[in-house]
């Protein structure tokens, strides 16, 4: 069976009101085929995280199960931007990424409005 490739309604973060299961966005930003153990709910957590954050996301991942299982070269399960650096510096890397976007937008070198809505 082919993966579902129909249209999904993409909601902005402010429009996202999750009252129940049926309100969860249908889009899957986490692809199957990763190497997480069968039944490991890390997969569930990542799927839900990406449903809430949507496509305008940069994931900064520390070294760990999720990192090695989901990005076994040359495959990746992530349909969003993703970076891994080392074991204890995910927060530091994330602050670098955030600062970069902030200052590049201020200098007019990237267009923050040209993101997914």
């Amino acid at each position: 069976m082919e993966p579902y490739t129909g249209e999904y309604e993409v909601l902005t973060m402010s429009e996202l009101r999750i009252r129940g299961v049926r309100d969860l966005p249908r889009e899957e930003l986490f692809a199957p085929g990763h190497g997480l153990c069968a039944g490991c709910t890390a997969g569930t957590i990542v799927r839900h995280l990406l449903k809430v954050t949507g496509r305008n996301t940069v994931i900064v991942n520390a070294t760990g199960c999720v990192e090695v299982s989901t990005t076994m070269h040359p495959y990746t399960s992530w349909r969003v931007s993703w970076i891994h650096v080392a074991f204890e510096n995910a927060a530091a890397v994330a602050s670098g990424v955030e600062s970069a976007f902030k200052v590049l937008a201020r200098k007019g070198l990237i267009d923050m409005s040209n993101q997914y809505p």
Binding site: V58, V60, I83, V85, A86, E88, N89, A92, V93, A94, S95, G96, V97, S99, A100, F101, V103, L104, L109, I110
Partner: peptide, 18 residues
């Protein structure tokens, strides 16, 4: 310093000059 370099790696990966 470990964070110093990690931070600029993140920033450079996002396209900034660091």
């Amino acid at each position: 310093e470990h964070s110093a370099l990690s931070t600029i790696i993140g920033a450079s990966a996002a396209g900034a000059r660091v």
